[in-house]
Amino acid sequence: MNEVIKKRYEFVILFDVENGNPNGDPDAGNMPRIDPETGHGIVTDVCLKRKIRNYVDVVKQGADGYNIYVREGAILNRQHEKAYIANNIDPKDEKTARAKVKDLTKFMCDNFFDIRAFGAVMTTEVNCGQVRGPVQINFARSIDPIVQQEVTITRMAVTNEKDADKKGNEMGRKHIVPYALYRAEGYISAHLAEKVTGFTEEDLELLWEGLINMFDHDHSAARGKMATRRLIVFEHSSMLGNAPAHKLFESVKVKRIDSSKPVRSYSDYNVIIDRSLLPEGVNLIEKL
């Protein structure tokens, strides 16, 4: 399980939201992100990676090799300093640091799961190099256009005594999507795992767990009900792969059952996998 992965993978993940905001846009008053030309909803790769990081943090509890580099409240230069201490290098000794940057980068890859998976730019004041991770995820896009709703809510309490003389409650707003099913696609490079970060078979299994369970540890009033519905994995028989990724993705189609009414649940869709499109050397695995 600790061996570096030897095969290339791609995957398709389907997840949904009910009466929640899956990924607010701070440039639009935190309304759900949307493609203005098509009306389809968007969830960024950064948002999905954040949830995977949080899941790993919950499961591993800071175990050796499974620290999280980009975490809430983290000061990245202090994370880098751990590599300097481990290699007996003074952070102010830039000449020695440049000479041993590979050792510093290796320490960061060995000790932080998210660097090993997603890579990181660590060329700040305390330089630990830069790595491109083997795991990359596209923006998720909703299957159908979404409806952004702004719902007015009330709080039966006021903030201070001055407000109490004027009113008996506070008004607020929540931004929700009544229902949407999203699709994201991802890539895992065995070449980058071997040559750069050392992403292992154990890391891979943890990634699959994270993709399946990430929403169960991320519930909040703002996000409503979110869940991973399907995780479909394409496993190649070699490191370089046996087919173009886009051809594999085309074998998974999501169809709306009844277009005459708005969708309000996962059962309003059919997920169709055309296995006849799979070339020799590619194994399709339904993780969920």
Rank of each mutant, 00 (worst) to 15 (best):
I143R: 01
G133D: 14
G133M: 06
P134A: 07
V147S: 03
Q149T: 06
M156F: 13
V131W: 11
P145W: 06
V151D: 14
M156A: 14
R141M: 13
V131I: 14
M156K: 15
R132H: 07
N138M: 13
A157W: 04
R155Y: 15
M156V: 06
A157T: 11
Q136L: 11
T154W: 05
R132N: 13
D144I: 02
T154G: 05
T154L: 04
V131F: 10
P134S: 09
V131G: 12
P145N: 08
Q149R: 11
V147A: 03
R141E: 08
V151F: 09
D144S: 01
A140L: 02
I137R: 05
Q149G: 00
N160M: 14
P134D: 10
R132K: 11
V151A: 07
I137C: 08
P134L: 10
P134I: 08
S142I: 03
E150F: 04
P145E: 05
R141T: 11
A140P: 05
E150Y: 04
Q148V: 13
P134H: 07
E150L: 11
T152A: 11
P134M: 07
V151Y: 12
D144W: 01
I153T: 15
G133Y: 08
D144F: 02
R155H: 15
T152L: 11
V135A: 06
V151N: 14
P145G: 06
A140Y: 06
V158N: 02
S142M: 03
R141I: 04
M156P: 02
I146E: 01
A140C: 08
F139T: 12
T152Q: 14
V151C: 10
I143M: 04
V158Q: 08
